[in-house]
Design a protein around this nucleic acid. Structure first.
Lengths: 257, 257
DNA sequence: AAGTGGTCTAGACCACGAT
DNA sequence: TCGTGGTCTAGACCACTTG
């Protein structure tokens, strides 16, 4: 027994250009991703057990397992032995601020909670550059947020965030201030947009006048510029973010392999 | 049949504090790592087939496979379907400069080859800070290299590299200049030291007088400071490196998930 | 005790590369 | 054609969590 007909490897990619062969577990994975995308299971909830999914897709448990394995290493799902497999979430997670790589330079300093201050939240027509990065037409409306993150009273991050207007309709400064925890948690629960992965481009730049004042540093101070594009399911860009990090007492940590 | 006696799960971690249980495939993985460490197979060479390893360790092919799977995702090994499984190498690899995340900001610009210029290569007693980072006693001898990387004639990276003297005995400026390709390739073939992973701390800093001259930028220009510790098998630190990246025409790329 | 994910095995067959 | 890694299955048992 190989697979239920509509799942047979041939049916997946009959084109001449693409990969000629797609293993069964990848097709299962794609189906599970589609269910996540459709909101069949919400962030934080458990998905069906491996046995149930195996029965549903008419494959063996091992095949489902391999599909889930990949999704777990991509941080789409979270396995907990004895309990089940859960949809990853940015809210109420042990590791808050999953995408923030900034950490205290001095190991002795306890990290402490992050203070969030929202400067403004507006809706406007997307500048050409922003529209291009967000895969939108120039002139469509976007939401723009500016905010500051502080550690122990000292401002360390100045963020400028751009979001597609259609996805974030009722976004206001008020709702931002009320919400506790990371922005991505709010995006999930209030707008049903789950950030799955991101890429970043880092540069060292001098602080401009406005930025210097907001971060309380002299004009020209070197800052770490972090340009991030965030994606949901299906590799769709849903956020453009430009962060300026003051790296006197913090640094950006990265692991290579 | 579970395992050959000396591999029984119990024997792996009888301590009270540590993890009470270590699956068989992790024990196999540890054995393979030990063989790599001992140089049984050199970088670029093929290791024995899964079947051979299964016979050697008296486990099933699936168990060996899971061990190798983990090592492949950690970039210790490289699987090539139909050919075999190979020891990862920094030399003669498609992706040269595996640990260098700098790339041209303008996508239109072809990357082109990197030009390397060695400024000096000395042996000296390790400053306290360097000794601590390299897990050495203060005063032991270390090798220090300074060099510049240029792209298309424009200097972009100024590196200062510290290596334990005991591991890199015959290291001279001459041998550095002669070798083609990434430093880590030379470390592998000439000194038998294979870099397996690294961590980095990034900051934005102003260019000092010397640095400014070498990188041909004005004093005070913001530079991206990249402090890297590199590890061999067994999590042993074997390199400390401080890079200053000029990020006007390049940026440091990172992926988050 | 029951249900979940985690491990291990054994065997069949497929895709790929070299010969 | 052969040997390699890659996929898929089926079944047994283990470890962890909850009732």
């Amino acid at each position: 027994m190989n697979a239920v007909p509509p799942l047979s490897p041939e049916s997946a990619a009959p084109e001449a250009a693409g990969p000629a062969f797609s293993p069964l577990y990848r097709q299962i994975k794609a189906l599970i991703v589609r269910s996540l995308q459709a909101g069949e299971w919400r962030p934080g909830e458990a998905i069906p057990s491996e046995m149930e999914l195996a029965a549903r897709f008419r494959v063996s448990q091992g095949t489902v397992r391999k599909a889930i394995d990949e999704m777990a290493t991509e941080n789409l799902l979270l396995r907990r032995q004895g309990k089940g497999t859960f949809v990853a979430t940015h809210a109420e997670q042990k590791v808050q601020y999953r995408f923030l790589r900034l950490e205290p330079a001095d190991e002795a300093v306890a990290p402490g909670p992050v203070e969030r201050l929202f400067l403004d939240c507006r809706r406007l027509r997307a500048p050409a550059e922003v529209a291009r990065a967000l895969d939108m037409k120039a002139g469509e409306t976007v939401a723009q947020i500016r905010r500051i993150l502080s550690f122990g009273g000292t401002p360390a991050v100045l963020d400028e965030i751009w979001l597609p207007g259609t996805l974030f309709k009722g976004l206001t400064a008020e709702r931002l201030s009320e919400y506790r925890g990371p922005l991505y948690g709010l995006f999930e629960s209030e707008f049903g947009v789950h950030m799955v992965r991101a890429d970043e481009k880092l540069r060292a730049v001098p602080a401009g006048p406005d930025e210097a004042e907001l971060l309380r540093v002299p004009v020209g101070t070197p800052l770490l510029s972090v340009e991030r594009r965030s994606f949901t399911y299906g590799d769709k860009v849903v956020e453009l973010r430009r962060g300026l990090y003051h790296t006197a007492k913090h640094h950006y940590r990265n692991e290579l392999s």
